[in-house]
Design a protein around this nucleic acid. Structure first.
Lengths: 347, 347
DNA sequence: CAGACCGAGTGTAACGATTCACGCCCCCGG
DNA sequence: CCGGGGGCGTGAATCGTTACACTCGGTCTG
């Protein structure tokens, strides 16, 4: 009992069905049957084969299997940032739905880097995944369309589809941006800051659009009423740094800030705290996503809620159903919901 | 220009090297050379082949490629809970290190479910991943050892290795548990609550061990000084519910609570707030991990910090280096660090 | 009793890319 | 003019699995 390796000693190679067949004294076809259609094999034979499998600790070679039979129960997903709870919550939704059908999720994070995103998409395709769920960044839409042209199911996540027959799950971000802005204006603020990411990201562009529309609807001139702060990174440090830049900027400082997501809002709040600016007294803050910790912060964060888990679940569901019954392409759009908390309430 | 599909019309099948070769008027061997050793191909030939590849929008079949050549630049990782920032931060570290060597990460979340974890591990092996990084749950260690026996590199993450030649990256959780307890005792608390997960999880068992050791060192009887609350789930809701149970329990209520991680501490704090129990006045709280939002909560959370990103990075680095130069198995252990904040400071 | 049928198992041709031992051609030096 | 390389390409063998057409006893049916 001093063996350090379980099972028989390997001779440097994985055993194959052939090895199993030889050991069990049957043909490879039978081994394959035991593996895939056990009901078609006599119990005694099956037992012999199973014994041989255990003996050799044989593990199916997925590459060969897939090469021959084409099918693969894997779905790839590319999200913008795996460290953002917004995306991990969606990932959970995807995974749970996929697990129901014995599918597996391959999750990758593009870090908003189109090149990295492209690399992952290519990898997925080379591996022959059944489908892809992606939160596309700028430019990758073409790649996705090309993949779809080659027969890979694609579902856009957190992005409304530009094409009628391309399924997507999204949230009305223009509406969400409007919701936040409307709320801030209702609180009496007349000059707002918008800490936003690159406009090449649809989410950022749309939320901005909502801001501008709302300003216009109230007869406000953006040049007067809006200070836009472009963020270096859509994480806490980016938000922190952006807020510092806002406070240091020339001209009258706004009395309210809308952050493009909760993680950056977290950073912004940190900067405000460190600089001794009171929230919401001197600066009201609104975030976006309503992630897990939003309501537990020093000043609970007003945020625009998105049904993250449900979005992920729905996207996976659409992907699976689409393949299964050739369902028509749906384009689901959820409505965002403003959750008002202390960070934006002056009274 | 009304084609809805980019590229030439597919006849229902992916083009293969053979198709490319035919179109380019060369042999399949040459196509393969263009793909893998472009320097060995004359520029004019290469151009022809590349044109054909574009024309057909050919995509390599990774299964066939790997079947023949064996190698695959993919590493699999299984973490306990993808929605916990502790794990996603580690995942980022892994991914970044892997990207340096053009490796790709396949990330899966076992939800502390051994069966699900086993499924993912088997899947990885069937796919022939180069190595596996895993935060093992109960029982899966055998599976991992078996995989290693079959030639797959394994690195344990957030788990000290039980075997000298099995590499691992971990944090001294006994020490971490002691740190937290020592701190709470130093604050004058004499009766502590410990909101913990299942002891089948090494992290939970070790931190508990640290708690008990420290209690003993101070001459305290656990039966008197410790109230253990088993958590249903290691997430915010679990922590919330656990704290409510604690407050509702019979006997003198402790004046301090140690939560096994920050996410559950978040939930516990939420329950305390909702029930109107002041922190740290009526109940001091300490968490574990020091995740991103710990210092931004209503009452900034005292926590035991772990170098998450670095842990992930190191694990990936060990995996890659091990294969590359047959380096000896290291077992890295990081030291946890107590970060004291308002949630546990009585003065 | 012939023929159909059945369950159980066999053997082999794919699947698509890579590899490798060889050809072929052309140029160069002796 | 011949031998020898080098540079470019060729094409068949191969990886491990699955699908499929097939064999082989034996039992049922009319």
């Amino acid at each position: 009992m001093t063996a350090t390796q379980p099972g028989p000693v390997r001779n440097g190679k994985r055993p194959s069905v052939t090895d199993v067949a030889r050991l069990a004294g049957v043909s490879v076809g039978t081994v394959s049957n035991v593996l895939n259609r056990p009901a078609n094999v006599a119990p005694s034979t099956r037992a012999k084969v199973e014994a041989a499998i255990k003996e050799l600790s044989f593990v199916r070679n997925a590459s060969a299997r897939q090469l021959r039979s084409g099918e693969l129960n894997t779905v790839g997903a590319v999200v913008l940032d795996i460290a953002n709870p917004f995306f991990t919550e969606m990932a959970r939704g995807i995974e749970d739905r996929l697990a129901q059908d014995e599918y597996t999720l391959m999750l990758c994070s593009s870090d908003e880097n189109p090149e990295r995103e492209g690399r992952y998409l290519r990898l997925f395709e080379e591996h022959g995944v059944r489908g892809v769920i992606a939160t596309p960044s700028e430019g990758s839409l073409d790649t996705l369309l090309a993949m779809r042209g080659r027969g890979i199911d694609v579902v856009l996540l957190d992005h409304t589809s530009p094409l009628p027959d391309l399924p997507s799950v999204a949230v009305d971000d223009v509406g969400g941006g409007a919701l936040a802005t409307e709320h801030l204006l209702a609180q009496g603020h007349t000059r707002l800051a918008f800490l936003n990411g690159p406009l090449t990201l649809r989410q950022c562009a749309d939320r901005r659009e909502g801001v501008l529309q709302t300003l216009a609807a109230h007869g406000l001139d953006p040049a007067e009423a809006l200070v836009e702060i472009p963020l270096e990174a859509l994480n806490a440090d980016g938000g922190d740094e952006g807020m510092r830049r806002l406070l240091a900027s020339a001209g009258p400082v706004p009395s309210a800030a809308f952050c493009v997501n909760d993680v950056t809002a977290l950073g912004a709040l940190r900067a405000l705290r460190d600089l001794g600016v009171s929230v919401p007294g001197e600066m009201a803050v609104v975030g976006y996503d309503d992630v897990m910790f939003a309501n537990m912060l020093a000043t609970p964060l007003t945020s625009v809620r998105q049904p993250m888990y449900k979005m992920g679940w729905t996207a996976a569901d659409m992907l699976l159903r689409r393949g299964a019954e050739g369902a028509a392409a749906e384009q689901v759009e959820f409505e965002p919901e403003l959750v008002v908390r202390a960070s934006s309430i002056s009274g």
